[in-house]
Design a protein around this nucleic acid. Structure first.
Lengths: 209, 209
DNA sequence: GGGTTTAGGATAGTTCCACTATCCTGTTGG
DNA sequence: CCAACAGGATAGTGGAACTATCCTAAACCC
């Protein structure tokens, strides 16, 4: 198929497709002659992926580029790839961050595997940032969160089993990660709102311990 | 104090302060003469608030404007105000959204107060959106999330008791809400990463049910 | 009292992002 | 044969959040 058809089928304007080609988000089609190129199903899938990552997950083009680069990296296994995608979607830090005492405590307790990860870097980064901002995380809150997320993590997000391509796999995981993380936040808001409405709101606080 | 001093003390350029004045984010100072106006501590606090909401919480100027308008609304009590702030920070929907069956189930179970709220609207919005996207939320996941957030909500976020002004109160709550919601997400990521690293990763999935 | 700063207002310019539109040349299908 | 479309290059758009320039008038300082 050629440019116009690709645009029609994907619902992306030819102008935008050209833009994505220029930016290297979408690989070039097979050039037929000086003014024609042939696109395949793979291009269509890639375009769906870009569309989903932009509109549903809200990623910027630079992030999407990193994701597509990871997909196209044959060295990278599926599991590694998923980790990268999760990191992109949740905006996790890639550079190592020294362990915060609270992280060390959590990991040391044997609750979680004691291995470096982007997720752990990000957690450390946030904890350090909270210290810097003069709002240090309280240990008992962390403990409660740990219990909570541990239950949640036990549920497998990914309906990724039946993905036919790495593009589809990534899209499913990215969308799932994003939507379920949003779900967690909204539910927390509902729970807090619910508590705020119940008796015992002591003046200024939003709830009671 | 005058413009320049306000800029120096707050660490915001005079050009930006002028911009905020124009946009109505910062109230005008008391005009002394055609080319002089006097600013107070209240202006300084407001500027700190704007800075915090932008740089820490990442709110856009339109949202910040809504927050400052709420602060300056004398009709609004502190508790109401806090609800608005939480809604702004977490990007909750203001318009009513019809209950999703899953929400109805949660509320009907008596777990949470059965009253409309922005938080509930947002949850409904998200659940409908997930249906539309063909990724409906699974009831058992929702149940696990509910247990989790209920524990978390039991902890009072706000170190807001000792705030001296509504500006300081709002800043404390906004920063707290934002940072603790981020904390929850990062910890979830860590928990998931930890499970992914443990044995039993069945091929493509990220964890086990 | 005159010269240099500065305030405050108005207006225009800048940077970044994600497109979108225009122009041009070169096929190509009917 | 020629309108239509392909692909490439380049420029323009619109929103967000500033930033810079210009101007007049007042004030501080000696």
């Amino acid at each position: 198929m050629q440019l116009k058809e690709l645009g029609l089928r994907s619902g992306v304007s030819t102008a935008s497709i050209k833009f994505y080609l220029r930016e290297g988000l979408l690989p070039r089609g097979r050039t037929m002659d000086s003014s024609r190129a042939e696109y395949t199903q793979a291009h269509l899938r890639r375009l769906e992926l870009i569309k989903g990552l932009r509109t549903v997950v809200g990623l910027g083009l630079d992030r999407i580029k990193a994701v597509t680069a990871a997909i196209d990296d044959g060295q990278l296994g599926d599991v590694e790839l998923m980790g990268r995608v999760q990191a992109m979607v949740l905006g996790l830090a890639e550079d190592p961050v020294p362990d915060h005492p609270l992280t060390a405590g959590l990991v040391g307790s044997g609750r979680w595997v004691d291995a470096p990860s982007q997720a752990r870097n990000s957690l450390n980064q946030l904890l350090h940032r909270m210290d810097d901002l003069g709002v240090p995380a309280r240990a008992e809150v962390l403990a409660a969160y740990a219990d909570a997320v541990d239950q949640v993590a036990a549920l497998d997000l990914a309906s990724a089993e039946q993905a036919g391509s790495r593009d589809e796999l990534v899209l499913a995981v990215a969308v799932g990660t994003h939507l379920y993380s949003q779900l967690l936040l909204k539910m927390l808001a509902v729970a807090q709102a619910s508590r705020a409405m119940r008796p015992g709101g002591r003046g200024r606080g939003q709830g009671a311990p």
